[in-house]
Computed example of a mutant assay.
Amino acid sequence: MVDAARGALGFLTRAPVGTDRQAWEAFRRTPAAFVPVGYLVGALAAVPVVLPLPAATVAVLFPLALVALTGINHADGIADVGDAAVVHGGEDPIAARRRVLKDSSLGVGGTLALALLVAGLVAAGAALAGLPPLAALAVVVAAEVSAKLGMALLACLGTAPADGLGAQLTRVSSERAPLVPVLLALPAAFLGIPSPAAAAALVTGVLTTLVFWRWADTHLGGVNGDVFGAANELARVVALHAGVIAWTLS
């Protein structure tokens, strides 16, 4: 489990833990290792939103904190999927989209997807600044746990269209494996009680991943590395906004 944790930190964050073949193999065979990283990243990323800073400042610092902690690899998945999503027509649109996924150049679809992602995170940071510190912390942690649980579910349930990162993460898990990741993520739903904000963030983020997974199966032919990264980013930003809305309405 130590190797799996080290592999998870090396893959999902910029933590200087060092990665090797043993850690990577342990991580990819242990989908549950995604989830604890969500608690850690969420707690650290929440630092700007719990400090007594102006909302505009938090709106800038919050996305920067996420980039500092996790890097840009998953955002690259958003860009690639955004480019692929705007491909239409042709005799084999799935094959055409998969070719675009492998293209390293950034197109209009990817640019728009990245712009919307950054705008969503900036807006979430500003909204979180208006919550009580403990409520904001609960939402950020639950959203990050939700994003990592979504990735674990993709590893457990998804199928890869070809060899690559997606295949390495999906071809060693069984459909019964989701139980442990789900159990590890459940405590995040109870953060910030009596407010339902954390529960809303956790559930909404997972639902976002599941919907995106079905879209990827239909339009991309399965789950590859870009889908994993895009799912993480989409689930996080949707969960953050859902948590803020739930707190506001409660």
Score class of each variant (00 low, 15 high):
1 M>E: 13
1 M>G: 14
1 M>T: 15
4 A>G: 13
4 A>V: 12
6 R>I: 10
7 G>Q: 13
8 A>Q: 08
10 G>H: 10
12 L>F: 09
12 L>N: 01
14 R>W: 09
14 R>M: 13
15 A>S: 13
17 V>E: 12
18 G>S: 15
19 T>E: 13
20 D>V: 14
21 R>P: 15
27 F>P: 01
29 R>E: 15
31 P>A: 08
32 A>K: 04
33 A>L: 08
33 A>I: 14
34 F>R: 03
36 P>M: 08
36 P>D: 01
37 V>I: 06
38 G>L: 02
40 L>R: 00
42 G>Q: 04
43 A>H: 00
44 L>D: 02
45 A>S: 09
46 A>V: 05
48 P>N: 00
50 V>S: 00
53 L>K: 00
55 A>E: 11
59 A>M: 10
60 V>I: 11
62 F>L: 07
64 L>G: 03
65 A>N: 01
66 L>G: 03
66 L>S: 03
67 V>D: 02
69 L>T: 00
70 T>C: 08
73 N>A: 15
75 A>E: 07
76 D>Y: 09
78 I>C: 11
80 D>Y: 05
84 A>W: 04
87 V>T: 06
88 H>P: 15
88 H>F: 14
90 G>D: 08
90 G>I: 02
94 I>E: 05
95 A>Q: 11
95 A>S: 14
95 A>V: 07
96 A>T: 06
97 R>Q: 00
98 R>L: 07
98 R>M: 08
99 R>V: 09
100 V>M: 03
101 L>M: 09
102 K>M: 12
103 D>I: 02
104 S>F: 10
105 S>T: 15
105 S>L: 14
107 G>F: 12
111 T>R: 11
112 L>T: 12
116 L>E: 11
118 V>Y: 14
118 V>Q: 10
124 A>D: 07
127 A>C: 10
127 A>Q: 06
131 L>H: 04
133 P>Y: 01
136 A>C: 05
137 L>E: 00
139 V>F: 13
141 V>I: 06
141 V>M: 01
144 E>H: 11
145 V>K: 00
145 V>N: 00
149 L>H: 05
149 L>A: 10
152 A>D: 03
154 L>S: 07
156 C>W: 01
156 C>K: 02
157 L>T: 05
158 G>D: 05
159 T>Q: 12
160 A>K: 01
167 A>F: 06
168 Q>H: 12
171 R>M: 10
176 R>W: 10
177 A>E: 02
177 A>W: 03
178 P>A: 05
181 P>A: 03
181 P>I: 00
183 L>M: 13
184 L>D: 04
187 P>G: 03
190 F>D: 08
190 F>H: 12
193 I>V: 13
193 I>D: 07
195 S>E: 01
198 A>G: 08
198 A>C: 06
198 A>V: 02
198 A>W: 03
200 A>K: 03
200 A>S: 14
201 A>P: 07
203 V>Q: 04
203 V>M: 09
204 T>N: 15
204 T>F: 14
205 G>K: 02
207 L>R: 04
208 T>R: 01
209 T>W: 06
216 A>Y: 00
220 L>E: 01
220 L>D: 04
226 D>P: 08
230 A>E: 05
231 A>M: 11
231 A>P: 10
232 N>A: 10
232 N>K: 07
232 N>Y: 07
232 N>Q: 09
233 E>I: 04
235 A>K: 07
236 R>K: 15
240 L>V: 01
242 A>T: 02
246 A>E: 05
247 W>I: 00
250 S>K: 13
